[in-house]
Design a binder for these strands. Sequence first.
RNA 1: GGUCCCGUAGUCUAGUGGUUUACGACGUCUCGUUUACACCGAGAAGAUCGCAGGUUCGAUUCCUGCCGGGACCACCA
Length: 799
Amino acid sequence: MNLKELKNWNIEAEKEIAKKWENSNIFNFNPKTRKKVYSIDTPPPYVNAPVHIGQAITYCYMDFFARYKRMRGYEVLFPLGLDRNGLPIEIAAEKKYNISAFKMSRAEFLDYCKKLLNETSYETKDTFSRLGISFSSYKEGGSLGSVYLTDSEEYRTLTQKTFIELYKKGLVYEDMRITNWDPKLQTTIADSEIEYKNLSSTFNYVKWKVKETNQEIIIATTRPELICTCGRVIFNPKDKRYKSLNGKTAISPLFNKEVPIKAHPLASLEKGTGLAMMCSMGDLSDIQFFRDEKIKPLIAIDICGEMNKNAGFLAGLKVREARKKIIEELKDKGLLEKQENITHRTPISERSGAEIEFIEMPEFYLKQLHFKDLIKKLSKKIKFYPQTARKILDDWIDSISIDWPISRRRFYSTEIPLWYAYDKDKKNKFIAVPPSGHYYKPWNEKVPLNSEVFKDHKKVGQIKDPEFKNLQWTGELRVFDTWMDSSISELFIIKYLEKEDFFKKSYPVSLRPQGKEIIRTWLYYTLLRGFLETGKMPFKEVWINQHILDGKNRKMSKSLGNVIDPQYLLSNYGAEAIRFWSAIEGDLSKQDLSCSEERIKAEQKTLNKILNISKFVMLFEKPKKIDFKITPLDKLFIDYIEELTNFSQREYEKYNFYGPAIKLRNFLWDLFASHYIEIVKNRAYNQEENFSEEECKSAKYTLHFLLERLLILLYPIIPQITSFILLEKGIKVLDSKWPVSKNVKSNSTLLSEIISFNSKIWKEKKEKGLSLKSQISDIEIPKKLKDFEKDLKIAHSLV
RNA sequence: GGUCCCGUAGUCUAGUGGUUUACGACGUCUCGUUUACACCGAGAAGAUCGCAGGUUCGAUUCCUGCCGGGACCACCA
C-alpha cells in the first residue's frame, strides 16, 4: 500500500496498520528507561459483554493522551486490564447455562464461570486494536504493561496480600451489624451499590395505644410487617399536637410491645399523622437512627427474606406475604384506620434489581471513617480534569457514615484468606492468617502450616504450635467485594510489593481516567486503599469523562434499543473517522457526547482531504537545504502553524484535545487547502517561469513544512493516517519528538484579508460567468496585500 | 428537598468580562470540472441566542423569576 495508489483513505488501509501495531512491540514499556514515566491506570472493561461505544471512545481519548505524552519524551505505561471478577460473571453464567449457584457445589459453579470466561471472545481486544489504541502490549503476561486479568492468580494474590497486612494492622474487623442485604443474590452489599426506584406502595394508618393515658394514636407506615421491631415512636419537636406524648409509652397493636415515645427532628410535621415508628430495618435512615440513638435493633427478617420468630405470628412468611397478612389481621381487629396509595422511593440492589432488606449479619469491615478527613485533605493535591468533578468526590466523602463492608457471600471473586477454629470448650475463637504471597482458597484448602494465629486481633501464636495444630480449622467461605480488587489496580500495574524499586519511582501513578458515575466507588476506594498502603494519594491527575449519548441525546440502553456497537461503526466508517469525530465533537470531560453516525461519516471527508493534500504536496520535491529566502506569504502561513503548535501543546497538556482538533481542522480546510495551496500552486509548478527558482523553492519548502507540522500535531488524534503519510515522507512519527515551536504570533488580520480578497475574485468571476483560470482585469490589490502582489496576480490571472 | 450544570438555525456546536452582517460543522438548495481532491469548488436559504421581567443609551451575554432538560446528593415513617 502506498500513497499514490490510495484513492481514498479506507478501512483496509487502517486494518493493515492496526494489525501491525498490535503485533509489534513498538509501544512496549521499557522498565530500564531513563525517561520520565507516564502511567495510566486504565479502567478494565468487563469481558463478558462486547466493548460499549462509550468505553471505545474513552479509550480513544486515553490513546490521545498516551501518544501525546510519548511525543513529549515520556516512557508511557498504558496497560489494558480485563475485568473478570464478580457478580456480572456469575449472573451471566447462571443465565447462560440455566443454573443456580446455590444448587451445586462451589467448585462446580466456579467451573461454569471459568467456562463462560473461556468462551468469551476476544472481541474486546480486537475493537481496541482496530481503533489503534497504543496499549503497551496486547499480550498477556507478567511484565510491565502487559494485558492483565483481574481474576489472575497474581492479581488475586495482591488483593489477599494487602488484606492480610491490613488485617494484621488491625484495620479490618468483623462485626455483627445491620447491613444492606440483597435477598436474591444472598449477599451484603455496600451503600454505593444501592440505587433507588420509585415504586408504588401503600401507606397504612394503624391504631396504637398510649400506655399511660390509654388514648388512641394513629401511626402511618408502609412496612406494617415491621411493627414488631419498632424501637421508638417519634414526632417532631415543633409538633404541638403530640407535645404531651413526650416520654410516654406507646403500645404496639397485635404485639402489645411497649415502645418509648420521644420528640425527634427526623419526624416530619406533614407526613402521615406526624407520628412515625422507627423500626430496626425499615430503610437506611432507620439504621442511622438506631446507630445514633444506641437502641438495640430487633431483627425480624432472615437471610432468605423470610420473617423469623421475632415476628410472632408472621414467622416463616416472605416479607410481602407477611405484609399482606398483617394488614388483613389489622383490618379484622379494626386497627387499620385507612390506607393511601403513594409512590415510595425504594432501595434496590444495583446488581440484581431486588428490593434491599436490612438484616443483621456478621461481615468484615475495613476502617474508613478514621481516615475520611485526611483523605479529603490529601486529595486536594490531585489535579482534576475538569475541576468540577472534585465536588462529586468531596460530597461523597462527606456523606460516608459507616466503615466499608468488604465481605460478600458470593463465589467468583477473590477469597478472604482466613481460617477459623475454636478451642475444646468452644470458648475461644481463633483466626489463622496465612503469610502473604500466595493465592489462597480457604473453602478448598487446608490451613497453611506457616499461618499466624490471632485472637481478638492479637497474635497468639502459630499454627505449628502444639495448642493450635490439632484444632479443627475451617476455611472462610466469603469473598471480597470486587472493589477490594479494583481499588488496587494502580498498585498492581506498577508492581507493588513485587518490583519495589520501580514501584517507588512510579508512585503516584500519573493519571486515572474514569467515568463520573464511579467516582464514589472506584476513585474513592482507590484513594482509600492507596492511602492505607502508602500514606500518599495514588494519582497525580484524575480525568473524569461524561457519557456518550445516542444521536438524539438519550442515554444508550438495551431497553431503548439505541445502543451503538463500535464494531459496526468501525466497519462502516473506520477508526480514524471515529477518533477524529470524538475529538472535534466536544470535550468529553466537560459534556456528554452525542453519537451521530452522520457526523462520523462526515469526518471521512476530512481524512480524504488530508490524503489529497498530501498527494499534492508530494508532487513536489522537498528542498534539502534552506538556501533561499522564504517569501512573505510563506512566512505568514508558517507563523500561523507555529502559533497553532503552541496552542495545541498548551491545550493537550490540559487534556483538551477538542480545541486544537477544531483549529487544526479549520486550518486544514479553510486556510491550507482553500487559500495557501490555491495561491501558491503556480509558484510551486512554475511551468511558465514567472517566479525565480528561489521563490519556487520557498513554496515547495513551505508546502512540505505546513503539511508535516499539521500531520504531527494531529498524530495523537488520528495516528493511523498521519503516521502512514509521514512514513512516505521518510518521517517516523512514532519515534518523533513534539516539535519545538517558535514563539511567534501570526498576523491574523493579514490572513483574513487574503481570504476575503480571494473570495471576492472567485465570486466576481462566477458572476461574470468566467472560469477560474480566465483572466480578469481592473482588480486592484489592497495596499495591505502589496507584499503578495505577484502571487495573487498570477494565482487569479489578474491583468 | 439540597447542590450544580445546561437551553444558540432541522441537527450538533463556538462565542461575546455589554453595543455594527452571532463562528463553524452536518444536513438542505443553486451553480460550477478549476494541472491534489465530486468524499471537490463557489454560493444561498435557514436563529426574535428557552420564556418573562429587571439593570443599562444598549443584553444572546449581567441580575431575578419561570418553563424545559440533565447530573450528583439527601430524604419521604
